[in-house]
Amino acid sequence: MRVNFTVNGRPQEADDVWEGESLLYVLRERLGLPGSKNACEQGECGSCTVRLDGVPVCSCLVAAGQAEGRDVVTVEGLGDHARQRSCGGSDGVPLDAAKGWAAKAGTDSQAGEGVELAPIQQAFIDAGAVQCGFCTPGLLVASDELLERNPNPSDADIREALSGNLCRCTGYEKIMDAVRLAAARQSEGV
């Protein structure tokens, strides 16, 4: 079947989608957006977290057909999403640019240099919250949504918001630091 939906502010069309396919599979394999990670395919790890009509969900548990006509934001569109939130207005991220994001990040030790990062992404880098990076996209999407909803989260709020995201490397302390840092920068307006 064919699925039409909006990804990172731009209309997209996926063809030859199998009816039982997940949104995650469509994003990664059909649209070439491998930012959302596939680690468990059963909702346990959160590494596939995207926003579906603004709401954080595990894209591995959304049937592709359920995304028809809806609005999806992935980690590739997070910088644009954050920019839009702070200054309003955006044409979205073209698919090629979104794919390019991954390529640039891959060839460059200054992850994503040349691409404007969302404040939460910068904070993860500055706080040293990224090790192997597999959990990072899901954590970024979940953390960004938390700060959108709750600009001054308590530690308990952060833990709660990120309780669906597993990280096998960092021990979570640096991730907590990163979210606190992004919240502090956000409230100082830097």
């Binding site: 039982g20 909702g43 049937a63």
Partner: peptide, 23 residues
């Protein structure tokens, strides 16, 4: 299929291949 948080796990792991999914 509503939230899909039970149904999709079964499909992803090939435990279930329904003839029809009713969204």
């Amino acid at each position: 299929i509503a939230g899909g948080t039970d149904v999709m796990v079964e499909i992803n792991f090939d435990h279930r291949r329904p003839e029809y999914l009713l969204d």
